[in-house]
Design a protein around this nucleic acid. Structure first.
Lengths: 382, 382
DNA sequence: CAAGACTCTG
DNA sequence: CAGAGTCTTG
């Protein structure tokens, strides 16, 4: 018996809107801790991982781990029948052959119910080893969306480059070449002080860019600090390891110690890259090398767009925060990034993480979990 | 000479939007009482009937009954040239070969004039005998729209079932089965107390679900109580008949007597089906039997949507009122119902009337008249 | 030809 | 914020 009740159908609707174009069928792996979904996109170039914490549900019951094989096209249709503010309950019996969805209208006494056939889906073993990234960019999701959309009009690929200068998105196309440089926003360090610390964007707690400060061990959320783990299993395993050896991202500023409540936002964020520690290069469980690229281009363009809602306590006017251990430059297919950016409906903030020659990770966190996209870089010449 | 002046072009525009996809050509039958249009849809499965009372016009003159054969596609185009708040005048000479439309801008001196060719259209004799229905559901038109739209995503047909439980819309499709149950809303009885009593939704006057109470005979509107008549001729003929034998709908609650001003909205709406009187089964003038169906499905779903405008004095937050004489279950093509539901632009409220094995009637009333759709049920097995 | 996505309007 | 219409893609 599996049952989960969600206060707002909107979350599920947005999640499906986010992934339905990438993946057609997927297993919702349900266990007592929550719901996980991992799947490669249809062309096996990208990977999407969704996590929904059990605690985020109004009601959650999962007697035993159970995979719910869902045709996402069907589920999308069924969810279209829910209003955003409906209270939604999903149920499955132990056979997991039918998914039962119940929508309760928020402001009326109506209850609607849908039954959807489930299916057996081969579990592709998508072991995504936790990876330590050399660069992490935290920015408004609307801005990321805008950038990749803009560039996708001009070209097929984008080179994303993180340096002391900031993060640069560059692309070239027949009509024009483009390059967009985002410098770290003044105050961004403070704004995102604890973003992603514990899987949701709480503003309290220590900053990420503190070094080996003694605040660590007692924080239960230390785990998600530096590396992005995909299997909870791996998570905790790694977490408990050395307090200052767990490979947290080093911001490019020396923002030491006592940033307990709010790290001071310093102006010199873009200089000293001293204490950076390099971690073992991430090995990624899926490898779908793409094509040539790695070009650099002259133009400049790019304008931000502001959305304002979703479930973050990070200011929606958030700026850009850049953390890096070393210079990173990778090229990706814009088509996929545009696809990923649909998740901006889920969060005002997105994190882009990269290490050279490793798939990038685009992560959107929302109250009850997160959605992560992995995309292998294009390699070689164009 | 025919001339009719309408305060708001919007009404005509919406009417044409409602029917233009169903019918391509139709006669506007004009007489001194107003304008009537009746036509079968192009595939002869559904029938639409529009009535515009002469009194609703700012100015109305019709020297002699005259049919204006209109190509609705053309008229739609011409009406697109009118602003919603234009004052619109339509004229035809006795030859009825040209329709002259004049648009006067509400807040300017602008006058636009259009001449549209009329045509001769064979008058299909669409005698729609007045019918007494065993069940009538009054609900927000937005909700009806939502339901049929939702279900049409999943399947082709919907079974509509009215029972003591309420009204259930159920559908089955490849992706999922669905079923939406609407129970009578608390207070709906009061809200719709006199809805449709005399062809427009006035809230005063006695309730419909009173039984054989002695309030009847003096009410001039008794006529439209129970049955939906299509020809005014038939209407009055039937009206004058027996005071309590005119087959008025019995609500499923025992809301007897003194419901003069506002029937009390009782909690027990969904129980006693006692005093129901059965009327002679309705005979319908057109019969376009469809296909198999009559399936029943397991799921449940449904959510309302609120619009808020149009010309009703029925609260736009109106609930659901259910009146029934006996259990009814029929299956219909969602494609047509979706089409009908376009008329929600004309009214916040819709009434769905059904008797077993008889075409259903979907009726939207607006200040100056109404639009009614008839649709034969699908019969047999799916 | 149909379905889905996106944009614009109410 | 929702719905309708248009355009694009499969």
């Amino acid at each position: 018996m599996f049952e989960a009740k969600l206060q707002e159908a909107a979350l599920l609707k947005r999640l499906l809107d986010s992934i339905k174009e990438l993946v057609t069928d997927a297993n919702f792996e349900c266990n007592e801790e929550g719901i996980n979904l991992q799947a490669m996109d249809n062309s096996h170039v990208a990977l999407v991982a969704v996590k929904l914490d059990a605690e985020g549900f109004k009601k959650y019951r999962c007697d035993r781990p159970i995979p719910l094989g869902v045709n996402l096209t069907s589920l999308t249709k069924v969810l279209k029948c829910a209003k955003d503010d409906d209270i939604i309950t999903i149920k499955a019996n132990d056979d997991a052959d039918i998914l039962n969805l119940i929508y309760e209208a928020r402001h009326s006494d109506r209850i609607a119910e849908y039954d959807m056939k489930l299916m057996d889906i081969d579990v592709e073993n998508l072991s995504i080893p936790e990876t330590e990234y050399d660069a992490r960019v935290t920015m408004p999701s609307s801005e990321f969306t805008r950038i990749v959309r803009d560039l996708s009009v001009l070209g097929e690929s984008v080179k994303i480059e993180v340096s002391k200068e900031g993060v640069r998105f560059s692309s070239e196309g027949e009509a024009a070449n483009a390059n967009i440089l985002l410098k770290q926003t003044e105050g961004a360090r403070r704004k995102y002080a604890n973003y992603g610390k514990d899987g949701n964007e709480s503003k309290k707690e220590e900053d990420d860019d503190d070094d080996d400060v003694e605040e660590g061990s007692s924080k239960k959320n230390k785990k998600s600090k530096v590396k992005r783990e995909d299997k909870d299993v791996d998570m905790d395993a790694e977490e408990e390891n050395g307090g200052d050896d767990d490979g947290e991202f080093k911001a490019d500023s020396d923002n030491d110690g006592e940033d307990e409540v709010e790290a001071k936002d310093e102006e010199d964020e873009e200089e000293s890259s001293s204490k950076k520690r390099k971690k073992a290069p991430a090995k990624v469980g899926f490898s779908t090398p793409q094509h040539v690229l790695f070009t650099s281009f002259p133009l400049q363009n790019g304008k931000p767009t502001k959305k304002a809602k979703k479930a973050d306590d990070v200011p929606s006017d958030g700026g850009v925060m850049i953390e890096m251990n070393q210079h990173v430059a990778l090229t990706f297919s814009l088509k996929y990034l545009v696809n990923f950016s649909k998740s901006s409906a889920l969060s005002d903030t997105v994190q882009v993480m990269m290490s050279n020659e490793v798939p990038l990770l685009v992560s959107y966190r929302f109250g009850q979990g997160d959605i992560r996209y992995y995309l292998a870089p294009k390699i070689g010449e164009e």
